[in-house]
């Protein structure tokens, strides 16, 4: 841990980065915090807990305000995949981000069912092999078509429309969110119109979702959202040969759809 602290300290003191986004211990609770040279002592409370906050999502908020500064950020495997996709979508400039890599423990990798529990460069922790587990998908695939529809409709009907799945997702960076487009999803209802609300989000995650699972962790209705997006991700890999979060220079085959969400023809007025 001291090695990690010293490494970040050097980055800050040398002026290589203006701030470091990590987690700080607050009365026994690790919470996101931007460490700076001005309060270098606070690095003593830098921690790496065994749960995650949406680091790259927070990073975007800071980058939007400080587009020219170089910022360090603590990344795990999933955050690093998000960085790759965010760079591709021109939401960040890779040159201005210094990822400080943390490899996840075996326990974490297993509980996240993570296929790649380590970032490109590791500054803390020991690399463990990824978990290849698609039992969640197999379970749904074993149902017949109408069974699958019932299963998903049953899941979606629990939705309380908190928008947590979108809010916590680093890859949900559109300025205008289609989920809030009243012509597509009627407002003011719980559950929101199903399955349209969830299908819109699933489609929008094609070519974007980096399979971090934060959405599912944030879902108060315990909907297995990640399985849904995983399926979309698999289809992208199988049919279009594209895997998100792998290579910064590989082109997203759906890129022509634009990064600001999809154009939706406005509903034709009945009048």
């Amino acid at each position: 841990m001291d090695k990690l602290r010293n490494y970040v300290k050097e980055l800050l003191e040398s002026g290589e980065i203006t701030g470091f986004l990590g987690l700080i211990d607050d009365g026994g609770h690790p919470i996101p915090h931007l460490f700076t040279k001005e309060h270098i002592d606070r690095l003593n409370d830098l921690v790496v807990p065994d749960f995650r906050y949406p680091m790259t999502d927070i990073l975007l908020k800071i980058v939007r305000k400080y587009p020219e500064s170089t910022i360090g950020v603590m990344v795990r495997g999933c955050d690093d995949r998000a960085l790759i996709e965010l760079a591709k979508n021109q939401k960040i400039m890779s040159d201005l981000i210094r990822p400080v890599g943390v490899a996840c423990s075996k326990e974490m990798a297993e509980s996240c069912r993570c296929s790649q529990p380590y970032p490109r460069e590791i500054h803390y922790g020991e690399k463990v092999e990824g978990v290849q587990d698609r039992s969640d998908l197999e379970e749904v695939e074993s149902m017949d078509l109408s069974g699958r529809l019932d299963y998903w409709m049953g899941q979606f009907s629990k939705c309380i429309k908190c928008y947590g799945c979108r809010n916590i997702c680093s890859m949900c960076f559109c300025d205008q969110c289609t989920l809030e487009d009243e012509t597509l999803v009627m407002t003011g209802q719980t559950p929101p119109e199903i399955p349209i609300f969830h299908l819109i989000r699933a489609f929008h995650m094609a070519g974007r979702c980096i399979d971090c699972g934060l959405c599912e962790e944030a879902c108060p209705a315990h909907i297995p959202l990640r399985s849904l997006y995983r399926k979309v991700r698999e289809d992208m890999a199988n049919y279009l040969g594209y895997v998100t979060g792998k290579d910064e220079y590989e082109k997203d085959p759906l890129e022509f759809l634009g990064s600001e969400g999809y154009e939706v023809p406005s509903k034709i007025d009945e009048t």
Partner: peptide
């Protein structure tokens, strides 16, 4: 204040919130 996040290690909401909380 620019945003709200759910506290991940809170025993009640365990990293989840409703729309009002968010």
């Amino acid at each position: 204040v620019v945003g709200t996040l759910p506290q991940k290690d809170h025993p009640i909401n365990e990293g989840k919130l409703c729309i009002k909380g968010w």
